[in-house]
Design a protein around this nucleic acid. Structure first.
Length: 136
DNA sequence: ATTCTAACA
DNA sequence: TGTTAGTA
């Protein structure tokens, strides 16, 4: 398998990624600070994102909408490694498989946080959990 | 015209 | 997270 190189090619600037993901530049840069994504840089320090980066951002966006914060996302998503040796592994999983895995891990997180209802530590989930205890 | 970092009436 | 300032 070798089109992974194409999925990891740094191609578009933040402006395009904003439109592709409906995320603000602030959010995209914020997620990068927390190592959820590691876009390449041009000689002029401009960020260049790959298709994989965009996919990850969409995943992040999805989790954020489910109420998961950065700490939670870090646990659910595969951490970005070296020069994308991990992006290769990730690309070997089908889109559906990845979603199933994410949901399973999300449930684990939910169960975990429901058990450690201890005050003091910040919860990994914030708000709208309706999908899990309400929905069907 | 775009993007970047840093910072907060 | 928004937003703005001062650059590159």
């Amino acid at each position: 398998m070798g089109d992974e190189i194409r999925r990891n090619m740094a191609l578009f600037p933040i402006g395009i990624v904003m439109k592709l993901t409906d995320l603000t530049a602030r959010q995209i840069r914020y997620y990068e600070q927390h190592e959820l994504i590691v876009p390449a840089r041009t000689a002029g320090n401009q960020r260049l994102f790959s298709f994989n980066d965009v996919e990850r951002l969409l995943e992040i966006k999805s989790l954020i909408e489910k109420g998961v914060n950065i700490a939670g996302i870090k646990q659910v998503m595969n951490p970005v490694s070296k020069e994308s040796e991990d992006a290769t592994v990730v690309s070997e999983l089908s889109e559906v498989k990845r979603r199933e895995l994410s949901d399973a891990q999300l449930h684990r997180l939910l169960k975990q946080q429901l058990l450690e209802k201890r005050p003091g530590k910040a919860s990994l989930i914030q708000g709208q959990l309706s999908r899990f205890y309400n929905k069907k």
